[in-house]
Computed example of a mutant assay.
Amino acid sequence: MTPEMISNLAHTRHPIKSPLGDASVRQLLDRVLPRDGGRVLDLGCGTAEWLLRALETRPGLRAVGVDLSEKSLEIARAAAEARGVADRLELHCQKAEEYTSPEPFDAVLSVGSAHAFGGLLPTLEGARARLAPTGSVLIGDGYWLSEPTAEAVEVLGEFTDLASTVDRVVGEGWVPVYGHASTRQELDHYEWSLWGTLAEWALDHPGHEDGAEVLDWSHARRDEWLHAYRDSFGFLTLVLRRTPAL
């Protein structure tokens, strides 16, 4: 079983694929989506759960998702058909940074997928290049709640604290118009859901050739969370507009 397959399995009960509850997702979408019609782009959409919820929220909206995983896009297409929004969803299997469109978008999303562009600020540059002048960006990435251990940095990569993260974004020409720092409940629910779902699948498939591997994976990831980064990792989601030219 590939890491991608394991990830999709782990997110079965948490398809938004970020440490955010449903109420937070609704509020963030309400702040970033255009009110009447419009077009939204998700860079690194995965199974496109953000776009599916956006399309259900705004009947006149049209959406485009870009991701490298054809398997994830297959899941997205099936879900779009089941939820009655397939006619307004366009999906592309390619690198996010290589996607181009003849028209800019009213909203650009990239939550939990900054790795697609190599980090938070490069992701914002990628969003800017595809955003209409009056459009909004929804971006979500990690930050340090407290001084991280060396193991936490090794597992998750380099972040800064909350204030420094916002300062960096503002310094690149963006105005935060809304933000949400995931709560302890949201962060814990996300981790318990991921690694518990994997463990449950392995226990329910004792004869499967990948069962032992998946169970070991769930144990290892849970231990990393509890011992390496639970107390230091936070997740910030921002709604941004361009800084006006003065």
Results as ranks from 00 to 15, higher is better:
residue 84 G to N: 04
residue 85 V to T: 02
residue 85 V to H: 04
residue 85 V to A: 02
residue 86 A to R: 13
residue 86 A to L: 06
residue 86 A to H: 09
residue 87 D to W: 09
residue 87 D to Q: 15
residue 87 D to G: 11
residue 87 D to P: 06
residue 87 D to K: 14
residue 89 L to H: 02
residue 89 L to V: 03
residue 90 E to N: 13
residue 90 E to F: 12
residue 90 E to W: 12
residue 90 E to R: 15
residue 90 E to Y: 12
residue 91 L to G: 07
residue 91 L to N: 10
residue 91 L to D: 03
residue 91 L to P: 11
residue 92 H to W: 10
residue 92 H to Y: 14
residue 92 H to G: 08
residue 92 H to D: 03
residue 93 C to Y: 05
residue 93 C to W: 05
residue 93 C to S: 14
residue 94 Q to K: 07
residue 94 Q to I: 00
residue 94 Q to V: 05
residue 94 Q to D: 00
residue 95 K to G: 15
residue 95 K to S: 15
residue 95 K to M: 13
residue 95 K to P: 14
residue 96 A to R: 03
residue 97 E to M: 10
residue 97 E to F: 04
residue 98 E to P: 03
residue 98 E to A: 15
residue 98 E to S: 15
residue 98 E to V: 07
residue 98 E to F: 04
residue 99 Y to T: 10
residue 99 Y to A: 15
residue 100 T to S: 15
residue 100 T to H: 13
residue 100 T to N: 10
residue 101 S to L: 01
residue 101 S to W: 02
residue 101 S to G: 02
residue 101 S to H: 06
residue 101 S to Q: 01
residue 101 S to N: 07
residue 102 P to F: 05
residue 102 P to E: 12
residue 102 P to G: 09
residue 103 E to C: 06
residue 103 E to N: 13
residue 103 E to T: 13
residue 104 P to M: 05
residue 104 P to Y: 08
residue 104 P to K: 08
residue 104 P to L: 03
residue 105 F to D: 13
residue 105 F to K: 13
residue 106 D to R: 04
residue 106 D to L: 00
residue 107 A to F: 00
residue 108 V to I: 08
residue 108 V to C: 11
residue 108 V to K: 12
residue 108 V to A: 09
residue 108 V to W: 07
residue 108 V to E: 09
residue 108 V to G: 11
residue 109 L to R: 11
residue 109 L to N: 09
residue 110 S to E: 05
residue 110 S to P: 06
residue 110 S to A: 14
residue 110 S to D: 06
residue 110 S to T: 09
residue 110 S to N: 13
residue 110 S to F: 01
residue 111 V to G: 05
residue 111 V to P: 08
residue 111 V to H: 04
residue 111 V to Y: 03
residue 112 G to K: 04
residue 112 G to W: 03
residue 113 S to C: 14
residue 113 S to A: 15
residue 113 S to K: 10
residue 113 S to I: 05
residue 113 S to Y: 01
residue 113 S to M: 14
residue 114 A to M: 11
residue 114 A to I: 14
residue 114 A to K: 01
residue 115 H to K: 10
residue 116 A to P: 06
residue 116 A to C: 14
residue 116 A to E: 08
residue 117 F to Q: 08
residue 117 F to W: 10
residue 118 G to A: 06
residue 118 G to V: 06
residue 118 G to I: 03
residue 118 G to C: 06
residue 118 G to E: 01
residue 118 G to H: 03
residue 118 G to R: 04
residue 119 G to W: 05
residue 119 G to I: 11
residue 119 G to S: 13
residue 119 G to Q: 12
residue 119 G to M: 11
residue 119 G to F: 09
residue 120 L to S: 07
residue 120 L to P: 04
residue 120 L to F: 08
residue 120 L to M: 11
residue 121 L to T: 12
residue 121 L to E: 09
residue 122 P to T: 06
residue 122 P to M: 06
residue 122 P to Y: 01
residue 123 T to Q: 14
residue 123 T to D: 10
residue 123 T to G: 06
residue 123 T to E: 11
residue 124 L to Q: 09
residue 124 L to S: 09
residue 124 L to D: 07
residue 124 L to H: 07
residue 124 L to M: 11
residue 124 L to G: 08
residue 124 L to N: 08
residue 125 E to T: 11
residue 125 E to V: 10
residue 125 E to K: 10
residue 125 E to C: 07
residue 126 G to N: 04
residue 126 G to W: 01
